[in-house]
């Protein structure tokens, strides 16, 4: 085994509960960048071959 296991029993502590949507703020920059691009072009070029 190679793993350092972080305490996994109950990783969410009460003081970690965010009053607001901190995770949304964290992703703000990435979201804004994505929304400033051309979604249609992204989706068109993202078309994948069906896999397994």
């Amino acid at each position: 085994m190679v793993t350092n296991q972080v305490e996994a029993e109950n990783p969410v502590e009460p003081d970690q509960r965010e009053a607001g949507d901190a995770f949304l703020r964290a992703a703000d920059a990435a979201i804004e960048r994505a929304l400033s691009g051309t979604a249609e072009a992204f989706l068109a070029q993202n078309r994948q071959l069906g896999g397994q």
Binding site: N4, V6, E18, F23, A26, A29, A30, R33
Partner: peptide
């Protein structure tokens, strides 16, 4: 990491880890 929404949230410490970076690097 510049456009992946998950990584942005993880970098901000907003998701729980069950292994640490040292373990990932070792893997």
């Amino acid at each position: 990491e510049s456009d992946g929404l998950f990584w942005a949230v993880e970098r901000a410490g907003q998701v729980d880890r069950v292994v640490d970076e040292a373990a990932v690097e070792r893997a």
